[in-house]
Amino acid sequence: MEELQPIEALPRSGNKIKFVIGGVIIVAAIVYLIASSLSANVQYFLTVEETLEKQLVGELAGRNIRVSGAVLGDSIEYNMDTLDLKFTIAHVPADNNLLEQEGGLAGALHNAVIDSQRSHLDVIYNGPVPDLLQNEAQAIITGEVLDNGTIMADEILLKCPTKYEGSVPDQIELEG
């Protein structure tokens, strides 16, 4: 029955405007949605040095941030009963040129860990120990910096550069 719709007279002029307005409303709603969600959810992505600087001048109060640094293997402490995890990350430059000078990410992480002059940031976290948490891993911490200068992590992302950089394997044997 419904394929036999009475054909209305072709509405010509003025009709287009209706659709333009409708389209504009939808697009505007989406743009508003994106803009408002973005401003509410942008986080600083900082190095350890930048975090400490900003923290000193109180710029980070109440803000969720992301910090990237190199994990100091000796600093990892874990309490299995309370699931409290503590470790320290060392400053790794974010600039690609500086990274290249240090021999890529793997080199930069290594240098960061052995250089005691680097600035350090203590991380606390409650939950399971991430699989890849080990010395010289790159940690990307999301969380809030507390007044005492440690960061309370909500999330810890880890990368072990040797697995991603395709470097020549350690166990090479010379032949011939």
């Binding site: 949605l33 969600s37 973005l38 509410a40 959810n41 942008v42 986080q43 600083y44 992505f45 992301r66």
Partner: peptide, 24 residues
């Protein structure tokens, strides 16, 4: 792209996390 653009324009590195995408 926003983090890259923000870095270029303001020199400040930022990230956009899952809550942004989820809200939209």
């Amino acid at each position: 792209m926003f983090p890259k653009i923000s870095e270029l324009v303001t020199g400040q590195k930022v990230t956009v996390g899952p809550p942004f995408y989820e809200r939209v």
